[in-house]
Design a protein around this nucleic acid. Sequence first.
DNA 1: CGTACCTGTCAGAAAAGGCTGACAGGGCTC
DNA 2: GAGCCCTGTCAGCCTTTTCTGACAGGTACG
Lengths: 123, 123
Amino acid sequence: MPEVPPPAPTGDALLRVLSALGNPHRMRIVAALLESRNYVSALAREIGMSRPLLHMHLQRLEAAGLVVGTLELAEDGKAMKYFDVTPFFYELTPDVVARAAATLTDAERAQPEKTEAEKEEAK
Amino acid sequence: MPEVPPPAPTGDALLRVLSALGNPHRMRIVAALLESRNYVSALAREIGMSRPLLHMHLQRLEAAGLVVGTLELAEDGKAMKYFDVTPFFYELTPDVVARAAATLTDAERAQPEKTEAEKEEAK
DNA sequence: CGTACCTGTCAGAAAAGGCTGACAGGGCTC
DNA sequence: GAGCCCTGTCAGCCTTTTCTGACAGGTACG
């Protein structure tokens, strides 16, 4: 069997990824999380961003499947949400874009496509 | 010598590419142009979009270096701007994103970085 | 000269994204 | 209980992006 079948993301999925990554703050967040996983409050302090704002950005990244957050209990009982970068891989070429564009849901809102997180949860 | 050295786009360049492609209309425009090069007015009719709007989207795509427009004179003397998709190729992985994030210009506007088109023009 | 097609640009409306401050809940330690 | 740290959410503001309608210029044809 082939090791790596050519990835062909759906239009909506690719759109989520590109618009999520097409933002300087979110690029930096991915960079910071790649260096070391972290929880929301600490990360907010590290990169000098308000916590609600960071929360929003993380939501967007998670909806695109680029990071995953897991709620972990520390020894002292505090509930902390740690985020990790997923080992994502997308090839960006005219062909991939065209292929994806062909499968674009007309209006994102028309078919509230499940996010990666929701797909997991539904198992 | 290696055939393909690992591409490492600057933060600003990658940001332009991702935010340009992170839009359903622009994905469709790339798809349409890949199938057949076209000029602005005809393309606008083809994909059912107002001409000024399409003009704006094409500008964004060209600034990201994903398409190129060339002004060509038809036999009847009409000046028509034909657009072609460039054979772009970007790998999207956590590492590439992190590498790019490290070279992000703090504020895009602070250093009015030259667009791909302007670099060409400056030769 | 009027019409038809091409190009570009501009002001202003509409929609989407980004951002803040405040609130609410939880568990721990002193 | 008060204080501290963690989590999340909300209304509202501000900025950016998206989009329209109207205007400008150009060449060619009848």
